Computed example of a mutant assay.
Amino acid sequence: MTELILQRPAPSGTTWVAVCRVDDLEECWGEAALVGHEQIALFRLPGDRVYAVGNIDPRTRAAVMARGIIGSRGTEPTIASPLHKEVYDLAGGACLSGGEGLRAYPVRCRDGMIEVHVAA
């Protein structure tokens, strides 16, 4: 099994929620998932890097970020809203033009399953 490079570790002593199998995520394509009461967008990038951010576009409040456009600024991966093309840092969720950012979630892989930490 390939070991994934996962972003934003959760604080110690937290609870994780299994979302999907690694193989369920197509590379360079987003998938939406409902975790607890939160919609998240999961992305698997080349090199098996996995990111999770909020699926709600901060500008329009539409649940569309999983259909965003994957890109990069330098070596940092980004996601652009499919509606207004606002660009966000995938690792931390910051809006690169200074607007409201996306929430970024800690992600890990255990036994082939992607797990996301969602604060209570």
Rank of each mutant, 00 (worst) to 15 (best):
M1Q: 00
M1G: 13
T2N: 07
L4V: 02
L4T: 11
L4H: 04
I5E: 09
Q7L: 10
R8E: 13
P11M: 06
S12E: 15
T15E: 14
A18R: 15
V19E: 04
R21K: 15
L25W: 05
E27I: 12
E27V: 15
E27K: 07
E27N: 02
C28L: 13
G30D: 09
G30S: 10
A33R: 15
H37K: 13
E38Q: 15
E38D: 12
Q39Y: 13
I40V: 15
I40W: 08
A41F: 11
L42C: 08
L42T: 07
F43M: 09
R44G: 01
L45G: 02
G47N: 05
G54N: 14
D57F: 02
R59Q: 12
T60L: 07
T60A: 08
G71I: 02
G71M: 05
S72V: 01
S72C: 12
S72D: 10
E76A: 14
I79L: 11
A80T: 00
A80M: 01
A80L: 04
S81F: 00
P82M: 01
K85L: 06
K85G: 01
E86N: 07
Y88C: 07
D89H: 14
D89G: 11
A91Q: 14
S97C: 04
G99A: 12
E100D: 13
E100L: 13
E100G: 05
G101I: 09
G101A: 11
R103L: 13
R103A: 14
P106M: 10
V107A: 09
R108V: 01
E115A: 02
E115D: 09
H117V: 02
H117P: 01
